Amino acid sequence: MKKKLFRMLTGLILSCSLAGSSTVMAQEADSSDTVKSYLTGEDVPASIGRRRPVAVMLGNDRNGAPQSGLTNAGVIYEAPVEGQITRLMGIFEDYDNLEKIGSVRSCRDYYIFYANEFNAIYTHYGQAAYALPYLEQHAIDNLNGLTMGSTAFFRTTDRQAPHNAYTTPQLLQNGIDAMGYSQEYKSDYTGHYLFAEDGTETTLDNGTAANVVKLDNYGDNHPWFEYNADTKEYSRFQFGEAHIDELNGQQLTCDNIILQYSAYKPYDSNGYLNVDVMTPGQGKFITRGKAIDIRWEKDSPWGITHYYDANDQEIRLNPGRTWVAIIQNDKVDSISYQ
């Protein structure tokens, strides 16, 4: 009887030990699982790559730059707003370790459509009047500083308002929780871009040289990109100097540049723009020091923009950060390549 009891206890202890080991192994496996990022095409932890990103509106005039946190953005949009200036929108999936993100500025209606292409939670501080109907109709999950205040944002003392509004990873989480937004992608979302297959790269062998790309169509910051053949990245400049991330002093870089030529018209005499996000247009795809002509189209206003080469094949980006520049179609001639 004692031997039988001993064997039962031994078996129970062994079973518990194996179960505990299995749990530890499962936890280790979960923490080491990687997926292809929808934003960059790179291998990232599943906890990052399958969490809905946040799309943060950022000031980009002389008072709003340099921004904080942009080196962590997987995709950056730049588009004109009123007064010759541009606004940036950083799309972030990996932001947990950032001290702050900002400065956060107000919404323009066309940015809502760009953010929605990534199933992102759109983060902004206020809005132009023309964007208000979309926000009031909850056309996109969004965190608005005017209504959420200190729940999701804070102000610094080193800059004057409105250029001093920022958010943090914890404040973003507070805002998402307060609004009850899901942090999982929609079940039918399968990503935005196509990327080069593992072990290959997109070289645009038949493209034209694009070692320096100057976007003088943007009349305030006059940005440009310079290609580094050693790193295979483009370095970003504006206002006559390197465009840096204020948090770490690093110059912003990207692996891909997409120029999206778009129709537009003024909304009013104040210069607010109605940028056409739906009517198909032309553009450029730039990577690895070369540029090719592309066309873009989307099947619905809330759908994803697809970019095609001269052979009607959807372009494949190189893994890494992508910079999308929205170019007013009557200012295309202001862009130069060297």
Rank of each mutant, 00 (worst) to 15 (best):
G180D: 08
I91D: 09
G74M: 03
P280H: 12
Q173A: 09
E226L: 07
Q313A: 15
D30L: 12
R155Y: 04
G219Y: 11
A209D: 14
K284Q: 08
T208Y: 13
I258V: 12
S106W: 14
R62A: 13
L143V: 07
V75M: 04
L194E: 14
P301W: 03
T147C: 07
K265N: 11
W323E: 10
T10M: 05
L171D: 02
L98A: 09
I257P: 07
D158S: 11
Q250F: 02
W296A: 00
Y134V: 00
N142T: 12
A152T: 13
K331N: 11
M1K: 05
D205H: 09
V324E: 02
D268L: 03
N217Q: 09
L18H: 01
A55S: 15
P133A: 08
S22D: 03
R7S: 08
N329L: 04
G149R: 09
I326L: 14
S187A: 14
R87Y: 03
F237P: 04
G249Q: 10
T200D: 13
V44N: 05
Q27P: 00
A55W: 00
N174F: 01
I292C: 13
G20Q: 01
I294K: 09
T157G: 08
V35G: 09
I121G: 06
G20P: 09
Q27D: 09
T253P: 07
V54A: 07
D30F: 12
R7G: 00
W296H: 06
I315W: 05
R321M: 10
G281L: 00
Y272K: 11
P169F: 00
L215K: 01
H243E: 13
I85P: 04
V35H: 09
P162R: 01
E28W: 00
H192D: 06
D293Q: 15
E99Y: 07
E99A: 08
Y234I: 10
A120M: 11
A19S: 07
G145K: 05
E201P: 04
D61G: 04
G74D: 01
S336Y: 06
A120H: 06
Y114E: 14
E226F: 05
P266D: 15
G145V: 08
C107R: 02
M57D: 12
P223A: 05
V35E: 11
W302K: 15
G126Q: 06
V54L: 06
A129T: 14
T167G: 02
L247E: 11
A19C: 10
I112G: 08
R236L: 10
V56P: 00
L18V: 05
L252G: 04
D43L: 15
N72G: 11
Y122G: 03
R105I: 04
A131F: 01
G102E: 00
I335L: 10
V213D: 13
A263P: 00
C254L: 10
D245M: 10
Y264L: 03
T253H: 13
P223D: 01
N164Q: 09
D141W: 09
I335P: 01
G240S: 06
D43F: 11
N63I: 01
Y114K: 07
Y308A: 08
T322A: 04
T147N: 12
T305H: 08
G59T: 02
D198E: 15
T190D: 12
A29K: 14
S150E: 14
L317T: 02
Y307R: 02
W224Y: 15
E78Y: 03
E117N: 04
H163M: 06
L58Y: 03
T200V: 09
Y122H: 12
I292M: 01
E241W: 05
Q328H: 05
P169Q: 03
K265D: 10
D188P: 10
D230Q: 14
L273R: 02
